[in-house]
Design a protein around this nucleic acid. Structure first.
Length: 955
DNA sequence: GATAGCACCATTTTT
DNA sequence: TGGTGCTATC
């Protein structure tokens, strides 16, 4: 497998430096090898420096790997390449925006600047919380949208709508939509009508035409409650088709108010985030886009002579346009494989690569409206396919092709010819095809998998490459090559095997079963830590302590082995065992959430990875700030709701099976692969997430799923008839699930297993591999192998840095009775009042503390900025970043005051507050290097300001 | 034997 | 939410 020289296709790409290239790089075709050589080759041209070549990758790891490998192939060493633009879209655009984009918001009619200390939020949970605050304020401030809000069940679903629109390149301006990007919201009528007509074709029955798919989707029409203005079933349902008139009427419905609403939410959210110094990744890209469009000087300054984009199938519309804007000339090379596009849920567009010619022309035209931004021609595109596969055997490649046409449901019909046309066939370079491809089922699927793993390990039948020698050289004849390859084969061990699953939950189940048997499996990826038994018990006890909630008791009793009737009886009479009551009372004494959790886990003897991980999560960012149980409950609930995951770090020894989701396996390869969990509903997966009331979907555009109506005197939220009708006329699409299947299969070098439980999915049954049901018999290995610490949870280390709340550097003792029983809610309300007052909201002070704050605010000179996020990165290894919120910043041209409100009656915590405010001091000092900066505590109870002197940072 | 209609079931992926 | 599988009906 060692290749020193590129094959002819690869060489062609390496030599093709100038021009637009679309590289179809299938699985295992040596993509990274070729890209890095091409990069090195461009560098060899006279006058070209690393800075002239932009290389964009999908992940930070990939960027690092690229840079490393380029360093091996070019005269530049890794240090010299460190500042080269080899980066992700996000990383690169963030740099650009921070350097040149301060004024960009004004191009959208926003007064705020992009600050130097911009907080780029990666933690979805945090953003959800911030968005919720925004949404409730928005609702208060816009009574004109009352009816729309009434129809929206979860306002926070608007958050993902905004993210989706940003990814599609739809950006709001104070007066309408930025550069007509809002046109996408209309949808595409022609495209829709075409789909509709196909979906409304009668199907072929045994005795002639039977009802069309569109017709069967509206069969329950009269039983659904639609608003009074909805057409009746008679008006819609014909036979064997639906009538076209109401469908067209639905498409053309008046959506002006909806568009305005979404515009206002989106625009005001941008204002909101900038006021608070934060942005999400997606919104940041949108600003970078605006900056490059609006500022020719910056654009021309940053453009590169050569641009390469890796994993192009995972780009969204905005990223494609950024690619064009960042190119100085028509030297653009995009590399990818449409068959491996599996991130649609992140709003990527597979058409970017599948319809590259069409898209690049369209995007250029859009970008050039009003001003010539893209000055190079984009119609001369050369396609270079890489067809030699260096990974898999011929048998596996042929199965992989098959995955692209497996039906996902019993009724789905697939246009195999159309897919075949798009396909660039891969050719195996292996000479020995010893592949075993097997499909097995049993109702205990984890056991079957473990059984097969034990069967495979050390089994000659499943030989894999175990030696590098003897090497194959070009001079050898093909039979000599085959002989050499055969010599490299040998019995597989655990670490030659990978198990892929569609869902994380199945991976967790398998992991736990494997541990019972002592089979070494290492899970790689995130798990839903808050969905574990440990977390559920913790939540139950929190609920019991907070309000003696029956929900909590029920969970605790169930865990204690109560039968359902007995648990019910106990719940009814509140006759809980004394030991439990006593434990509850003990828990109520706990002062911090960390202490609470530790007590629960000790009681239940949980000391494994999940418990430890939970402890670290809970004592991390939130221990100091979550001082009441109800806050802790809300936190855990929202974490669960957000499906937040924590990375698991498993190390059951060097020789272990790898377990991961298919998404996590992308880009990797293993000698033996198990495609597990091929069960109904699991893979292919269906059942859309119950997302928001307002949906964006191509080609119907922005639509409302439910509507408020009181026209018949009864206020009610109805399902929206036109949404139901339109979506019923769209085909369901399982292409991405098939591509996921393709990705899984193409990870395998030699052998493939497909496994399912007692309800296999069509992917499993329709594949040409015959399945056998086997009775699993798994041999438990020696107990010593089973170790509680066999895997451990690591706190997410985004970019290897850790984020600490400033509260964590303070001594916990300050929370002892700080508020003399007034509670954090009192403080929260006061902070809210102060913020609202500064923002000139119509609020009046309640209580003397708030009066004092008002007097203080009235007396201050300068610009007042409330609630500023302060971020202080420390030069430590591993990197630690301190985060806090400055209550109030008062700026004048000469000086800056930092003010923090404290509701304490005493002064015993002042030394700790000095640490907190010192952090703010250093953040602000960075931002305003030439001004006098002071830090002050305002004690609201006593109406007293205390100025502190800042501490220096010890590094 | 074939078709339409209804009740039922189980519920993601992550830079 | 939408596919599956059972059942009523022709």
């Amino acid at each position: 497998m060692t290749r020193i020289s590129p094959n002819p296709d690869q060489q062609k790409l390496i030599n093709s430096t100038d021009g637009i290239y679309l590289v179809n790089a299938g699985a295992g075709t040596g993509k990274t090898f070729t890209i890095t050589h091409r990069y090195a080759n461009i560098l060899e041209q006279p006058g070209i420096e690393p800075d002239d070549i932009l290389l964009v990758t999908f992940t930070r790891n990939a960027a690092e790997e690229m840079a490393d490998r380029i360093a091996q192939q070019s005269p530049y060493d890794p240090v010299q390449l460190q500042d080269a633009p080899i980066s992700t879209f996000h990383g690169y655009c963030y740099q650009l925006l921070r350097r040149y984009g301060h004024e960009t918001p004004s191009d959208l009619g926003i007064n705020d600047q992009i600050p130097q200390s911009l907080d780029l939020i990666e933690d979805e949970l945090r953003e959800r919380t911030l968005f919720k605050t925004f949404a409730s304020r928005f609702e208060d401030q816009h009574p004109e949208y009352e009816q729309l809000f009434a129809a929206i069940d979860t306002p926070s679903s608007l958050r993902s709508l905004v993210a989706e629109l940003a990814a599609k390149g739809v950006i709001p301006h104070r007066d309408g939509w930025y550069r007509e990007t809002g046109a996408a919201l209309d949808g595409n009528r022609d495209e829709f009508m075409e789909l509709f007509e196909r979906q409304n074709q009668p199907n072929d029955g045994a005795n002639g035409p039977i009802q069309s798919d569109a017709r069967s989707s509206v069969s329950g029409w009269e039983n659904t409650e639609y608003a009074p203005d909805a057409p009746t079933a008679d008006e819609i349902v014909g036979y064997p088709q639906v009538h076209a008139d109401p469908v067209e009427q639905a498409f053309d419905e008046d959506r002006e108010e909806l568009f305005e609403f979404v515009h206002d939410v989106y625009f005001e959210y941008l204002q909101h985030t900038l006021e608070r110094n934060y942005l999400t990744q997606g919104l940041m890209l949108a600003f970078a886009f605006v900056m490059l469009c609006e500022n020719p000087g910056v654009r021309k300054g940053v453009q590169h002579q050569y641009v390469m984009v890796d994993e192009f199938q995972d780009t969204n519309e905005l990223q494609f346009k950024l690619t064009l804007l960042l190119s100085e000339r028509d030297n653009i090379c995009v590399v990818g494989d449409w068959k491996q596009s599996i991130y649609g849920f992140q709003y990527t567009t597979v058409e970017n690569i599948q319809r590259f010619d069409e898209r690049i022309a369209r995007y250029k035209a859009e970008l050039n409206r009003g001003e010539d931004r893209i000055t190079y021609p984009v119609d001369d595109i050369e396609e270079i396919p890489l067809q030699l596969n260096y990974r898999s055997t011929e048998s596996i490649l042929s199965l992989a092709t098959e995955t692209l046409t497996v039906p996902a449901t019993s009724s789905e019909s697939i246009d195999e010819d159309a897919i075949e046309k798009e396909l660039t066939p891969l050719k195996a370079t292996n000479h020995v095809d010893n592949s075993r491809t097997e499909a097995v089922t049993h109702e205990d699927e984890p056991e079957v998998i473990l059984d097969r793993i034990q069967h495979v390990v050390d089994n000659e039948t499943y030989s894999v490459e175990v030696r590098d020698e003897p090497k194959t050289t070009d001079e050898m004849s093909s039979s000599e090559k085959a002989a050499a390859e055969r010599e490299r084969l040998g019995k597989p061990s655990y670490d030659d095997i990978a198990v892929f699953t569609r869902t994380r939950s199945f991976a967790r189940e398998l992991l736990e079963t494997a541990q019972e048997y002592g089979i070494p499996i290492a899970y790689e990826g995130g798990i839903e830590l808050f969905d574990t038994d440990q977390a559920k018990l913790l939540l139950a006890w929190l609920r019991i302590c907070e309000a003696n909630e029956k929900r909590g008791w029920a969970a605790v009793l169930e865990d204690a082995g109560y039968t359902l009737p007995r648990a019910k009886e106990t719940l009814k009479t509140d006759a809980y065992p004394e030991s439990m009551i006593a434990f509850r009372d003990e828990l109520r004494e706990c002062e911090t959430l960390g202490g609470f959790a530790r007590t629960v886990f000790d009681e239940y003897g949980y000391d494994g990875a999940y418990a430890n991980g939970l402890l670290r999560e809970l004592t991390g960012m939130y221990d100091a700030t979550l001082s009441t149980w109800s806050e802790a409950i809300a936190y855990i609930e929202s974490t669960l709701e957000a499906g937040s995951t924590v990375e698991i770090d498993s190390s059951p020894g060097d020789d272990s099976v790898t377990l991961q989701t298919i998404h996590g396996a992308k880009g990797l390869e293993y000698p033996i692969v198990f495609c597990a969990n091929m069960n109904r509903r699991a893979f292919p997966h269906y059942g859309k997430p119950s997302s928001g009331t307002i949906q964006y979907q191509e080609p119907i555009g922005l639509r409302q799923r439910s509507v408020y109506d009181d026209s018949n005197g009864r206020p009610y939220v109805y399902k929206h008839w036109s949404y139901d009708l339109l979506t019923g006329c769209l085909p369901s699409d399982y292409d991405e699930e098939r591509r996921l299947f393709y990705v899984a299969v193409t990870r395998a070098k030699r052998h493939l297993f497909f496994t399912a439980g007692d309800n296999p999915s069509p992917f499993f049954t329709e594949l040409s591999v015959d399945s056998t049901e086997i009775d699993p018999s798994v041999t438990a290995r020696e107990l010593e192998e089973v170790d509680d610490e066999a895997f451990s949870v690591t706190v997410p280390e985004r970019s290897r840095s850790r984020r600490l709340s400033v509260h964590e550097i303070m001594d916990d003792s300050i929370y002892d009775d700080v508020d003399e029983g007034r509670g954090t809610e009192f403080g929260d309300r006061l902070h809210q009042f102060a913020e609202d007052y500064v923002r000139r909201k119509d609020v009046s002070p309640v209580g003397s503390d708030q009066e004092h704050v008002k007097t203080l605010l009235d007396s201050l000179d300068g610009t007042l900025k409330p609630e500023i996020t302060a971020i202080l990165p420390l030069d430590l290894e591993p990197q630690i970043t301190l985060v806090g919120i400055i209550d109030l910043l008062v700026t004048t041209p000469e000086q800056v005051q930092i003010i923090d409100y404290k509701t304490d009656r005493g002064r015993h915590a002042e030394s700790e507050y000095r640490k907190q405010l010192s952090v703010y001091y250093h953040v602000v000092a960075n931002e305003y290097p030439n001004r006098d900066i002071s830090i002050q505590i305002f004690y609201t109870a006593d109406d007293e300001t205390v100025e502190l002197s800042p501490l220096t940072i010890t590094r």
